[in-house]
Design a protein around this nucleic acid. Structure first.
Lengths: 122, 122
DNA sequence: ATAAACCCTGACATCCGTGTGAGGGTCAAA
DNA sequence: TTTGACCCTCACACGGATGTCAGGGTTTAT
């Protein structure tokens, strides 16, 4: 299949498919014209790439284990666990930070509402 | 005071102080040489700017109410509440998304650990 | 043969506060 | 006066996946 078909089949833009190739996540053979030609399995592969991207992994991390998870189950790929654990701890950190900011904002909003109430009361 | 002193007094880099000025958050008069000269109140102003930056507001949002909060209390500035509320809802959205990803990762990590246990058991 | 649809590479833009470096002027103490 | 510390503006880089445009070649159906 050509790049336009793969794009439609996966929802990834043509731009993105070329980018995944550049990052070593996807390969294609070429026609004499230079057109990329994809194996039908590429559809599943692109879906897998996008799944991991949606988990916040970057292309380098995905590249480190993609060849394995395409052949075997995720659980059988040595590389996967440390990447997931690293990502999880990053996310925990982000959630902690956002939660602090959230509390701070909530306090400030509450104070402002209080002031407004008192203003009216006068 | 000059920019280097203000930088030391506030912890903001000289680069950042110039940037705040460009964004309309900070003003300075100039010596004939072109050197910036700051009012002593600038120290408090820069601290205020950095406080709001740390809450995730951008320079444009801060600019929209900074002149007011430097004169009056936060609660008396009309502009503040809607900005805080907008930011809060963004943060809630971010936390929700991160929490989904977090659950997904935790599930996957647990599955992998399960597999490993079974592997050993054999 | 011609038009429409498809594909190619390369490169700039995005977000946005901050780091950094070039190239050059100013101030203060020795 | 010289030296070192300080200041100025301008401009590129970052992060990282994606959008988009330019300029040009290919395929396919009519």
């Amino acid at each position: 299949m050509r790049i336009g078909e793969l794009s439609k089949a996966t929802g990834a833009s043509i731009r993105s498919l070329r980018y995944y190739e550049k990052k070593g996540l996807l390969t294609a053979s070429r026609l004499e014209s230079g057109y990329r030609v994809y194996n039908p399995l590429a559809v599943e592969q692109v879906r897998t790439i996008r799944l991991y991207l949606s988990l916040g992994l970057n292309t380098e991390q995905i590249a480190s284990f993609l060849h394995c998870v395409m052949k075997s189950k995720e659980a059988f790929c040595e590389e996967v666990l440390p990447v997931f654990e690293k990502k999880l701890s990053e996310i925990d950190g982000q959630i902690r930070l956002l939660s602090e900011i959230r509390s701070n904002l909530i306090d400030r909003i509450a104070s402002i509402r209080e002031e407004k109430k008192e203003e009216k009361a006068q």
